[in-house]
Design a protein around this nucleic acid. Structure first.
Lengths: 173, 173
DNA sequence: TATTGTTATACTCTATAACTATA
DNA sequence: TATAGTTATAGAGTATAACAATA
Protein backbone atom coordinates (compact mmCIF):
# COMPACT_ATOMS: atom_id res chain seq x y z
CA UNK A 1 0.00 0.00 0.00
CA UNK A 2 1.53 3.33 -1.10
CA UNK A 3 2.64 5.59 1.68
CA UNK A 4 1.03 8.64 0.09
CA UNK A 5 -2.39 7.10 0.49
CA UNK A 6 -1.66 6.18 4.07
CA UNK A 7 -0.46 9.67 4.88
CA UNK A 8 -3.59 11.17 3.41
CA UNK A 9 -5.77 8.97 5.59
CA UNK A 10 -3.80 9.79 8.69
CA UNK A 11 -4.83 13.40 8.30
CA UNK A 12 -8.51 12.55 8.16
CA UNK A 13 -10.77 13.27 11.09
CA UNK A 14 -13.90 11.64 12.40
CA UNK A 15 -16.17 12.76 9.57
CA UNK A 16 -13.87 11.33 6.93
CA UNK A 17 -13.00 8.12 8.67
CA UNK A 18 -13.89 5.11 6.50
CA UNK A 19 -17.53 4.17 6.98
CA UNK A 20 -19.00 0.73 6.93
CA UNK A 21 -20.85 -0.18 3.78
CA UNK A 22 -22.88 -2.77 5.69
CA UNK A 23 -25.68 -0.25 6.27
CA UNK A 24 -25.49 -1.17 9.95
CA UNK A 25 -25.20 1.78 12.30
CA UNK A 26 -22.39 1.17 14.78
CA UNK A 27 -22.68 4.56 16.46
CA UNK A 28 -21.04 5.35 18.83
CA UNK A 29 -18.66 2.39 18.88
CA UNK A 30 -16.22 3.61 16.22
CA UNK A 31 -15.71 6.79 18.26
CA UNK A 32 -14.75 4.86 21.38
CA UNK A 33 -11.03 4.47 21.96
CA UNK A 34 -11.46 1.10 23.62
CA UNK A 35 -13.44 -0.30 20.70
CA UNK A 36 -10.96 0.96 18.11
CA UNK A 37 -8.10 -0.43 20.19
CA UNK A 38 -9.76 -3.80 20.36
CA UNK A 39 -10.43 -3.99 16.62
CA UNK A 40 -6.88 -3.01 15.75
CA UNK A 41 -5.36 -5.34 18.32
CA UNK A 42 -7.36 -8.34 17.12
CA UNK A 43 -6.37 -7.63 13.51
CA UNK A 44 -2.72 -7.29 14.53
CA UNK A 45 -2.88 -10.52 16.51
CA UNK A 46 -4.37 -12.45 13.60
CA UNK A 47 -1.76 -11.04 11.25
CA UNK A 48 0.98 -12.03 13.68
CA UNK A 49 -0.41 -15.54 13.92
CA UNK A 50 -0.34 -15.91 10.15
CA UNK A 51 3.13 -14.40 9.86
CA UNK A 52 4.63 -16.71 12.48
CA UNK A 53 2.60 -19.81 11.71
CA UNK A 54 5.58 -21.70 10.32
CA UNK A 55 7.44 -21.13 13.61
CA UNK A 56 4.37 -21.84 15.76
CA UNK A 57 5.10 -18.77 17.84
CA UNK A 58 2.54 -16.48 19.50
CA UNK A 59 3.10 -12.84 20.44
CA UNK A 60 3.65 -13.55 24.14
CA UNK A 61 6.24 -16.19 23.27
CA UNK A 62 8.20 -13.83 21.06
CA UNK A 63 8.09 -11.29 23.87
CA UNK A 64 9.47 -13.79 26.35
CA UNK A 65 12.26 -15.02 24.10
CA UNK A 66 13.19 -11.45 23.32
CA UNK A 67 13.35 -10.29 26.93
CA UNK A 68 15.19 -13.39 28.08
CA UNK A 69 17.83 -12.87 25.42
CA UNK A 70 18.35 -9.22 26.34
CA UNK A 71 18.33 -9.95 30.08
CA UNK A 72 19.86 -13.37 30.66
CA UNK A 73 19.64 -14.74 34.19
CA UNK A 74 16.51 -12.81 35.09
CA UNK A 75 14.00 -14.34 37.48
CA UNK A 76 10.52 -15.34 36.32
CA UNK A 77 8.83 -12.83 38.58
CA UNK A 78 10.96 -10.01 37.17
CA UNK A 79 10.16 -10.88 33.58
CA UNK A 80 6.51 -11.29 34.42
CA UNK A 81 6.40 -7.85 35.99
CA UNK A 82 8.16 -6.29 32.99
CA UNK A 83 5.77 -7.86 30.49
CA UNK A 84 2.61 -7.57 32.55
CA UNK A 85 2.19 -11.33 32.91
CA UNK A 86 1.24 -12.73 36.30
CA UNK A 87 3.80 -15.17 37.60
CA UNK A 88 1.14 -17.84 37.81
CA UNK A 89 0.40 -17.49 34.09
CA UNK A 90 4.06 -17.37 33.21
CA UNK A 91 4.59 -20.96 34.31
CA UNK A 92 2.82 -22.77 31.45
CA UNK A 93 4.28 -20.30 28.95
CA UNK A 94 7.82 -21.12 30.09
CA UNK A 95 6.96 -24.80 30.40
CA UNK A 96 6.22 -24.86 26.71
CA UNK A 97 9.32 -22.90 25.68
CA UNK A 98 11.43 -25.15 27.89
CA UNK A 99 9.81 -28.31 26.51
CA UNK A 100 10.62 -27.08 23.02
CA UNK A 101 14.22 -26.65 24.06
CA UNK A 102 14.28 -22.88 23.55
CA UNK A 103 14.66 -21.73 27.15
CA UNK A 104 16.64 -23.04 30.10
CA UNK A 105 15.48 -22.78 33.72
CA UNK A 106 18.51 -23.03 36.02
CA UNK A 107 18.36 -22.97 39.80
CA UNK A 108 19.91 -19.70 40.88
CA UNK A 109 22.86 -20.13 43.22
CA UNK A 110 22.16 -17.00 45.23
CA UNK A 111 18.47 -17.69 45.86
CA UNK A 112 17.55 -21.29 45.30
CA UNK A 113 13.86 -20.46 45.18
CA UNK A 114 14.24 -18.67 41.89
CA UNK A 115 15.12 -19.66 38.35
CA UNK A 116 17.70 -17.93 36.21
CA UNK A 117 16.28 -17.85 32.69
CA UNK A 118 18.43 -18.13 29.61
CA UNK A 119 17.99 -19.00 25.96
CA UNK A 120 19.39 -22.27 24.76
CA UNK A 121 21.46 -22.24 21.58
CA UNK A 122 18.37 -23.40 19.72
CA UNK A 123 16.39 -20.59 21.29
CA UNK A 124 18.99 -18.02 20.32
CA UNK A 125 19.10 -19.30 16.77
CA UNK A 126 15.33 -19.33 16.45
CA UNK A 127 15.14 -15.80 17.79
CA UNK A 128 17.37 -14.61 14.96
CA UNK A 129 14.87 -15.93 12.45
CA UNK A 130 11.94 -14.56 14.43
CA UNK A 131 13.46 -11.10 14.49
CA UNK A 132 13.88 -11.12 10.73
CA UNK A 133 10.27 -12.16 10.29
CA UNK A 134 9.23 -9.55 12.83
CA UNK A 135 10.92 -6.79 10.87
CA UNK A 136 9.01 -7.78 7.75
CA UNK A 137 5.77 -7.99 9.67
CA UNK A 138 6.33 -4.62 11.27
CA UNK A 139 6.81 -3.05 7.87
CA UNK A 140 3.15 -3.73 7.24
CA UNK A 141 2.25 -1.12 9.82
CA UNK A 142 4.93 1.31 8.73
CA UNK A 143 3.88 1.10 5.09
CA UNK A 144 0.29 1.94 5.96
CA UNK A 145 0.98 4.55 8.64
CA UNK A 146 4.11 6.19 7.34
CA UNK A 147 7.16 6.50 9.55
CA UNK A 148 5.89 9.58 11.35
CA UNK A 149 2.40 8.11 11.74
CA UNK A 150 3.84 4.98 13.29
CA UNK A 151 5.89 6.95 15.81
CA UNK A 152 2.86 9.06 16.61
CA UNK A 153 0.76 5.96 17.14
CA UNK A 154 3.32 4.49 19.53
CA UNK A 155 3.35 7.73 21.50
CA UNK A 156 -0.43 7.93 21.65
CA UNK A 157 -0.71 4.29 22.72
CA UNK A 158 1.77 4.89 25.54
CA UNK A 159 -0.36 7.81 26.72
CA UNK A 160 -3.55 5.76 26.55
CA UNK A 161 -2.03 2.86 28.44
CA UNK A 162 -0.83 5.24 31.10
CA UNK A 163 -4.20 7.01 31.32
CA UNK A 164 -6.14 3.79 31.75
CA UNK A 165 -3.62 2.36 34.21
CA UNK A 166 -3.43 5.37 36.54
CA UNK A 167 -7.13 4.92 36.85
CA UNK A 168 -8.49 3.73 40.18
CA UNK A 169 -12.16 3.04 39.54
CA UNK A 170 -12.32 3.53 35.81
CA UNK A 171 -14.49 6.64 35.88
CA UNK A 172 -12.12 9.19 37.27
CA UNK A 173 -12.26 11.12 40.55
CA UNK B 1 -4.04 14.68 34.07
CA UNK B 2 -3.66 18.12 32.47
CA UNK B 3 -4.03 18.24 28.74
CA UNK B 4 -0.89 20.33 28.29
CA UNK B 5 1.19 17.50 29.68
CA UNK B 6 -0.53 15.02 27.44
CA UNK B 7 0.00 17.19 24.38
CA UNK B 8 3.67 17.52 25.19
CA UNK B 9 4.04 13.76 25.37
CA UNK B 10 2.21 13.27 22.12
CA UNK B 11 4.95 15.19 20.36
CA UNK B 12 7.68 12.97 21.73
CA UNK B 13 9.35 10.46 19.53
CA UNK B 14 10.94 7.10 20.18
CA UNK B 15 13.96 8.41 22.03
CA UNK B 16 11.86 10.43 24.45
CA UNK B 17 9.16 7.89 25.06
CA UNK B 18 8.86 7.05 28.77
CA UNK B 19 11.40 4.38 29.70
CA UNK B 20 10.99 1.65 32.22
CA UNK B 21 12.79 2.18 35.48
CA UNK B 22 12.88 -1.57 36.06
CA UNK B 23 16.35 -1.79 34.52
CA UNK B 24 15.01 -4.55 32.32
CA UNK B 25 15.72 -4.12 28.64
CA UNK B 26 12.54 -4.70 26.65
CA UNK B 27 14.10 -3.84 23.28
CA UNK B 28 12.59 -4.07 20.72
CA UNK B 29 9.12 -4.73 22.11
CA UNK B 30 8.15 -1.13 22.88
CA UNK B 31 8.84 -0.25 19.25
CA UNK B 32 6.49 -2.91 17.96
CA UNK B 33 3.01 -1.70 17.07
CA UNK B 34 1.41 -4.99 18.05
CA UNK B 35 3.00 -4.96 21.50
CA UNK B 36 1.98 -1.37 22.18
CA UNK B 37 -1.53 -2.13 20.96
CA UNK B 38 -1.78 -5.09 23.27
CA UNK B 39 -0.57 -3.16 26.32
CA UNK B 40 -2.96 -0.29 25.68
CA UNK B 41 -5.87 -2.59 24.94
CA UNK B 42 -5.42 -4.61 28.12
CA UNK B 43 -5.23 -1.42 30.19
CA UNK B 44 -8.38 -0.07 28.51
CA UNK B 45 -10.18 -3.35 29.08
CA UNK B 46 -9.31 -3.40 32.78
CA UNK B 47 -10.40 0.19 33.14
CA UNK B 48 -13.68 -0.61 31.42
CA UNK B 49 -14.26 -3.56 33.72
CA UNK B 50 -13.79 -1.35 36.77
CA UNK B 51 -15.95 1.43 35.35
CA UNK B 52 -18.86 -0.91 34.54
CA UNK B 53 -18.49 -3.28 37.48
CA UNK B 54 -21.69 -2.08 39.12
CA UNK B 55 -23.61 -2.93 35.93
CA UNK B 56 -21.77 -6.21 35.38
CA UNK B 57 -21.26 -5.33 31.74
CA UNK B 58 -18.29 -6.24 29.57
CA UNK B 59 -17.15 -4.38 26.45
CA UNK B 60 -18.66 -6.88 24.02
CA UNK B 61 -22.01 -6.68 25.81
CA UNK B 62 -22.11 -2.89 25.59
CA UNK B 63 -21.30 -3.20 21.91
CA UNK B 64 -24.15 -5.64 21.35
CA UNK B 65 -26.72 -3.59 23.26
CA UNK B 66 -25.61 -0.49 21.41
CA UNK B 67 -25.85 -2.01 17.93
CA UNK B 68 -29.16 -3.72 18.66
CA UNK B 69 -30.66 -0.45 19.80
CA UNK B 70 -29.50 1.42 16.71
CA UNK B 71 -30.52 -1.41 14.36
CA UNK B 72 -33.60 -3.12 15.79
CA UNK B 73 -34.73 -6.30 14.04
CA UNK B 74 -31.28 -7.22 12.79
CA UNK B 75 -30.30 -10.86 12.44
CA UNK B 76 -27.63 -12.40 14.63
CA UNK B 77 -25.36 -13.14 11.70
CA UNK B 78 -25.55 -9.51 10.56
CA UNK B 79 -24.64 -8.14 13.96
CA UNK B 80 -21.89 -10.67 14.31
CA UNK B 81 -20.40 -9.63 10.99
CA UNK B 82 -20.60 -5.95 11.91
CA UNK B 83 -18.87 -6.45 15.26
CA UNK B 84 -16.42 -9.10 14.14
CA UNK B 85 -17.95 -11.80 16.33
CA UNK B 86 -18.43 -15.26 14.85
CA UNK B 87 -22.05 -16.34 14.91
CA UNK B 88 -21.11 -19.37 16.95
CA UNK B 89 -19.64 -17.17 19.67
CA UNK B 90 -22.54 -14.77 19.54
CA UNK B 91 -24.95 -17.39 20.85
CA UNK B 92 -23.79 -17.52 24.50
CA UNK B 93 -23.38 -13.72 24.54
CA UNK B 94 -27.00 -13.23 23.48
CA UNK B 95 -28.12 -16.06 25.74
CA UNK B 96 -26.85 -14.11 28.71
CA UNK B 97 -28.33 -10.79 27.63
CA UNK B 98 -31.64 -12.52 26.97
CA UNK B 99 -31.55 -14.33 30.32
CA UNK B 100 -31.00 -10.98 32.00
CA UNK B 101 -34.06 -9.63 30.23
CA UNK B 102 -32.16 -7.02 28.22
CA UNK B 103 -32.60 -8.42 24.70
CA UNK B 104 -35.45 -10.15 22.92
CA UNK B 105 -35.01 -12.85 20.28
CA UNK B 106 -38.14 -13.02 18.10
CA UNK B 107 -38.66 -15.45 15.24
CA UNK B 108 -38.52 -13.38 12.07
CA UNK B 109 -41.68 -13.69 9.94
CA UNK B 110 -39.88 -13.36 6.62
CA UNK B 111 -37.19 -15.96 7.31
CA UNK B 112 -38.08 -18.28 10.14
CA UNK B 113 -34.54 -19.50 10.48
CA UNK B 114 -33.38 -16.13 11.79
CA UNK B 115 -34.01 -14.09 14.90
CA UNK B 116 -35.00 -10.43 14.92
CA UNK B 117 -33.10 -8.85 17.79
CA UNK B 118 -34.51 -6.02 19.86
CA UNK B 119 -33.87 -4.41 23.22
CA UNK B 120 -36.46 -4.96 25.92
CA UNK B 121 -37.62 -1.92 27.86
CA UNK B 122 -35.21 -2.92 30.61
CA UNK B 123 -32.44 -3.18 28.05
CA UNK B 124 -33.22 0.25 26.64
CA UNK B 125 -33.27 1.78 30.10
CA UNK B 126 -30.01 0.15 31.10
CA UNK B 127 -28.37 1.33 27.91
CA UNK B 128 -29.18 4.95 28.83
CA UNK B 129 -27.22 4.53 32.06
CA UNK B 130 -24.43 2.68 30.29
CA UNK B 131 -24.04 5.48 27.76
CA UNK B 132 -23.70 8.05 30.51
CA UNK B 133 -21.05 5.96 32.19
CA UNK B 134 -19.35 5.42 28.86
CA UNK B 135 -19.10 9.15 28.27
CA UNK B 136 -17.37 9.60 31.62
CA UNK B 137 -15.06 6.69 30.96
CA UNK B 138 -14.18 7.98 27.51
CA UNK B 139 -13.20 11.32 29.00
CA UNK B 140 -10.27 9.53 30.60
CA UNK B 141 -8.72 9.05 27.19
CA UNK B 142 -9.64 12.50 25.96
CA UNK B 143 -8.14 14.16 29.04
CA UNK B 144 -4.84 12.37 28.54
CA UNK B 145 -4.66 12.59 24.76
CA UNK B 146 -6.28 15.93 24.07
CA UNK B 147 -9.16 16.19 21.64
CA UNK B 148 -6.92 16.30 18.59
CA UNK B 149 -4.74 13.50 19.89
CA UNK B 150 -7.77 11.31 20.44
CA UNK B 151 -9.03 11.89 16.89
CA UNK B 152 -5.57 11.20 15.56
CA UNK B 153 -5.39 7.98 17.51
CA UNK B 154 -8.75 6.81 16.14
CA UNK B 155 -7.56 7.54 12.62
CA UNK B 156 -4.28 5.73 13.12
CA UNK B 157 -6.01 2.72 14.66
CA UNK B 158 -8.37 2.51 11.68
CA UNK B 159 -5.37 2.49 9.37
CA UNK B 160 -3.62 -0.19 11.40
CA UNK B 161 -6.69 -2.40 11.51
CA UNK B 162 -7.05 -2.06 7.78
CA UNK B 163 -3.38 -2.75 7.14
CA UNK B 164 -3.36 -5.92 9.23
CA UNK B 165 -6.68 -7.11 7.79
CA UNK B 166 -5.84 -6.67 4.11
CA UNK B 167 -2.98 -8.94 4.87
CA UNK B 168 -3.06 -12.42 3.37
CA UNK B 169 -0.15 -14.22 4.94
CA UNK B 170 0.97 -11.67 7.48
CA UNK B 171 4.30 -10.90 5.90
CA UNK B 172 3.32 -9.03 2.80
CA UNK B 173 3.56 -9.98 -0.87
C1' DT C 1 -27.44 -27.14 -1.68
C1' DA C 2 -26.84 -23.11 1.15
C1' DT C 3 -27.87 -20.40 5.23
C1' DT C 4 -29.27 -19.48 10.31
C1' DG C 5 -28.78 -20.58 14.61
C1' DT C 6 -27.14 -23.97 17.64
C1' DT C 7 -24.24 -27.45 20.29
C1' DA C 8 -19.96 -29.36 21.44
C1' DT C 9 -15.35 -28.70 21.96
C1' DA C 10 -10.56 -26.85 22.26
C1' DC C 11 -7.00 -23.39 23.01
C1' DT C 12 -5.35 -19.11 24.82
C1' DC C 13 -5.29 -15.27 28.07
C1' DT C 14 -6.48 -13.58 32.45
C1' DA C 15 -7.49 -14.17 37.32
C1' DT C 16 -7.69 -15.94 42.41
C1' DA C 17 -6.57 -19.22 46.05
C1' DA C 18 -3.63 -22.33 48.07
C1' DC C 19 0.44 -25.24 48.21
C1' DT C 20 6.05 -26.08 48.45
C1' DA C 21 10.49 -24.80 49.18
C1' DT C 22 13.19 -21.67 50.30
C1' DA C 23 14.55 -17.11 52.55
C1' DT D 1 6.59 -14.17 57.90
C1' DA D 2 7.53 -13.22 53.23
C1' DT D 3 8.90 -14.52 48.58
C1' DA D 4 9.51 -17.57 44.11
C1' DG D 5 7.59 -20.83 41.72
C1' DT D 6 3.93 -24.00 41.22
C1' DT D 7 -0.73 -26.30 40.94
C1' DA D 8 -5.56 -26.18 40.45
C1' DT D 9 -9.31 -23.89 38.79
C1' DA D 10 -12.50 -20.59 36.69
C1' DG D 11 -14.15 -17.13 33.31
C1' DA D 12 -13.90 -14.94 28.90
C1' DG D 13 -12.53 -14.62 23.85
C1' DT D 14 -11.61 -16.98 19.80
C1' DA D 15 -11.69 -20.99 16.76
C1' DT D 16 -13.46 -25.33 13.98
C1' DA D 17 -16.71 -29.13 13.06
C1' DA D 18 -21.15 -30.83 12.80
C1' DC D 19 -26.17 -30.80 13.46
C1' DA D 20 -31.41 -29.28 12.83
C1' DA D 21 -34.56 -26.25 10.78
C1' DT D 22 -35.46 -23.57 7.02
C1' DA D 23 -34.63 -21.46 2.59
Amino acid sequence: MPSAFATARVKQHADHRPRDNTAIDLTPLPEMVGYALRRAQVAAFRSFTRAFAEYDIRPAQLGLLSVIERNPGLKQSEIGAALGIKRTNLVPLLDELEARGLVDRAKAASDRRSHALRLTDDGAHLLVALRLREAVHEKRATAALGKAGREQLLDLLAVVEQAYSTDEDGVGA
